[in-house]
């Protein structure tokens, strides 16, 4: 009875299947990762192109029997599924861009993880926020208190993702080295393992695809 892991981790065979599968993985990772992951530009572009082509096929069939037949029903159901994943993926990213806007702006390497439309959104939103805080109360405060990036004691105004917050993950590929999770505490990551542990310990493996967030 060895259907589970291999079945689950079976590689999709065609590029079309691979792209959709990878889009779903990116979506799940993005939903559960505390940080903003690199934008899945290639996959999103290809899936969106196919989506558009499919919509056009559907629209060009209007008036024919194909438009209302059951094949059309299947096509439309699938379109809604794809749209849902893309929508949720993009909006998950915007949520994080809103929460960690200043942090992202201040870190060029993180800024690279954004698509160009996301970057535009980020810049304009930060301007809006700045203006809002200024008109609401900041401009009434003494000049030296007008800033949006002070640090008081341990806490910075620039909110950064908490990389140590725990996540559930599944190991896709056995990782050879032992993983340090605390002082004198190591875990092994074997294919199929499921763990709850701090994100920072596996962040690199998530990006590389060896571990998925679930």
């Amino acid at each position: 009875m060895d259907w589970d892991v291999d079945e689950l981790l079976a590689e999709p065979t065609t590029e079309v299947e691979q792209d959709y599968s990878s889009l779903c993985t990116q979506w799940l990772n993005e939903r559960m990762a505390p940080e903003l992951l690199p934008f899945a530009e290639d996959v999103v572009t290809r899936v969106t192109e196919r989506l558009r082509a499919q919509l056009e096929t559907l629209q060009s069939s209007i008036g024919t029997a194909n438009a209302t037949g059951y094949r059309s029903v299947l096509i439309q159901i699938e379109l809604e599924r794809i749209k849902f994943v893309l929508r949720s993926y993009l909006r998950t990213r915007l949520s994080k861009i809103d929460d960690y806007g200043q942090y992202i702006q201040a870190n060029p390497s993180v800024l690279l993880n954004l698509s160009s439309t996301e970057r535009q959104y980020l810049l304009r939103h930060q301007q809006l926020l700045h203006r809002h805080y200024m008109t609401s109360f900041l401009r009434e405060l003494p000049m030296k208190m007008n800033k949006l990036d002070d640090t008081i004691g341990r806490t910075s105004m620039v909110a950064a993702p908490d990389m140590d917050s725990p996540v559930f993950c599944m190991v896709n590929e056995t990782i050879e080295e032992n993983l340090r999770v605390a002082e004198n505490e190591y875990v092994t990551l074997d294919r199929g393992d499921i763990l709850l542990l701090k994100y920072s310990a596996i962040a690199n493996y998530v990006r590389a695809g060896a571990v998925s967030l679930i």
Binding site: K83, F84, S88
Partner: peptide, 12 residues
């Protein structure tokens, strides 16, 4: 435009 981003995020 094809995605209608403000539509529901409940699975279809």
């Amino acid at each position: 435009v094809d995605l209608d981003l403000t539509a529901s995020v409940v699975p279809p």
